[in-house]
Simulated assay, not measured.
Amino acid sequence: MNGTSAPAISVLMPCYNCGAHVAEALQSVLAQTFDDWELVVVDDGSRDDSAARIAACEDPRIRLLRQDNAGVSAARNRAIAAARGARLAFLDADDWWAPTLLERLSAALDAAPGALIAYCGWQNVGLPGKAGEPYVPPDYETDDRDAHLLTACPWPIHAVLVKTRAVREAGGFDETLATSEDYALWLEVAARGRLVRVPEVLAFYRHHGGGQATADRTRLARDQYRVQTAFLARHPEVAERLGRRRARGIICAGLRRRTYEAYWERDLDAARDLFRFALARGCLRPADLRHALPALLPRPLHARLLAGRDRRPA
């Protein structure tokens, strides 16, 4: 890329108080084997040395924008507005990529002209057991594509290369959502075109307990339900293809799963909130009521009822 032509890919990086990790994220972009990119970093009102660390990186392909703290969706939307590339990749300031990610995802989109999104596998670094193992997602371009995508967010935000026009046509990120804003965008983009998979683990998500949005399980479950139901309201053709009863069942099953995860782990406040939320929306089955109805009791009484009882099924 020369100094005047638009890059092939715009990498977009929101940053808020990520001074401990942003240098590693920047280095993973600089190390890409595909080098026709620009990196648009939006410092979202950081109070640490994040901006100084970014500014110290003198590569001319890196642009640093600054704003008062407005949240990750606002930061990403500002980066989208500033992007010059025909394709977008998203990398948060505490995550990183394998050196071939842009090369492999770009080649996949080149080979599938009708596709809007290329996605790859990832690893959740810092989680114990199976949750922290490398994972390659399925090929979602199957006969059950709608069901796969409606079940849950199909990939983390940094495991995707997407055409810029598709993101802008979908309206970018919903700034009213505290979580699942990426899921809402991917559903909208996927409704407009094909997906292509790169079956390699190329993206790495850092779990470090630093106040990440996904740590709030109640908010995450509520936001996912909101995203799914709003998407079906905008796209009744998806519900028709799936069958309205099945589509509703997929959404409710996800809400129940998140509710029981909190319940069996004895995160009582989250479980109580989510049981009430699911009950009000008709998402519970008769068998769920023995667990859900006590959530309507005062919390101290509910806690006493659970003491020594009702353990997770084997």
Rank of each mutant, 00 (worst) to 15 (best):
I9W: 08
I9G: 11
S10G: 12
V11N: 03
M13N: 00
M13I: 00
C15I: 00
N17R: 06
G19S: 01
G19H: 04
H21E: 05
E24G: 13
A25M: 03
L30Y: 01
A31K: 00
Q32C: 02
T33P: 01
D35P: 04
D36E: 07
E38V: 05
E38T: 07
V40I: 15
V42S: 01
D44V: 04
G45W: 03
R47A: 09
D48P: 06
A51M: 01
P60D: 14
R66G: 08
Q67Y: 03
N69C: 11
A70T: 04
G71F: 13
G71T: 10
V72D: 08
A74C: 10
A82H: 11
A82D: 14
R84H: 08
A86W: 01
A89F: 12
A89M: 10
F90A: 11
F90T: 04
L91A: 08
A93Q: 00
D94G: 12
D94T: 07
W96F: 13
P99G: 04
P99F: 13
L109N: 08
D110H: 06
D110T: 12
A111W: 11
A112N: 15
P113M: 00
A115E: 10
A115Q: 10
L116D: 14
G121F: 13
V125P: 10
L127Q: 15
A131M: 04
G132N: 09
E133D: 15
R145D: 03
W155P: 00
I157L: 13
H158C: 09
A159Y: 07
V160E: 05
L161K: 08
V162E: 09
A178E: 14
A178C: 04
E181A: 15
E181V: 11
E188A: 15
V189D: 14
A191T: 02
A191M: 03
G193E: 07
L195R: 02
V196D: 01
V198N: 03
V198P: 09
V198W: 03
A203W: 01
Y205V: 10
R206M: 02
H207E: 07
H207D: 14
H208R: 04
A215T: 10
A215Y: 12
D216N: 15
R217I: 14
R217F: 14
L220V: 00
D223P: 03
R226N: 09
V227K: 10
V227T: 13
Q228K: 10
F231N: 04
A233E: 14
H235G: 02
L242Q: 01
G243R: 00
R245T: 12
R246D: 08
R248P: 00
I251D: 15
I251K: 10
A253K: 06
L255C: 12
R256G: 06
R256Y: 00
R258I: 08
E261M: 03
A262W: 13
Y263R: 04
A270N: 15
R272N: 12
A280N: 08
R281A: 02
R285C: 01
R285L: 12
A287Q: 13
L293K: 01
P294N: 11
P294S: 09
L296P: 14
L297M: 15
P300C: 02
A303H: 12
L305F: 09
L306K: 09
L306S: 11
A307S: 07
G308I: 10
D310L: 06
D310F: 07
D310Q: 12
